[in-house]
């Protein structure tokens, strides 16, 4: 959907919520899932059937990958928010508002 320009200052203002709340809140929300995804309690019972250990190993590696990627993704979202905040602040200063 086309978004008509409201002029430099207002277009800059429109980016502020993304940099200051949407992205940081998103990273915070996503981070809440990391610890749970990375925590694995063995599902084995008292028996010792070898193929059970193989399925557990594969599952744990998969869950670790999901959790590790989530952590990296959160760092990137924070970095994006920070970079955008700095651009907004820079342009405000260049406009004599900083």
């Amino acid at each position: 959907m086309p978004v008509p320009s409201r002029g430099f200052e207002l277009d800059l203002t429109d980016l502020e919520p993304v940099a200051h709340s949407v992205l940081p809140d998103l990273a915070t929300g996503l981070r809440k899932s990391i610890a749970t995804i990375l925590t694995y309690d063995s599902v084995a019972g008292p028996g010792r059937f070898d193929p059970v250990y193989r399925v557990e190993g594969a599952y744990q590696a998969f869950a670790d990958l999901i959790g590790d990627r989530l952590a990296v993704g959160c760092d990137r979202i924070d970095a994006t928010a920070r970079a955008l905040r700095e651009v907004i602040a820079l342009y405000r200063r260049a406009d004599g508002q900083g």
Binding site: S42, A44, G45, G47
Partner: peptide, 25 residues
Amino acid sequence: EDFMSLEPRKIYDEYARMEQEGSAL
């Protein structure tokens, strides 16, 4: 004992944790 090598209660707990996180995402 071979057929006791998996504990349904523990598997259910792991399932529920992952479903909950998937749902939160």
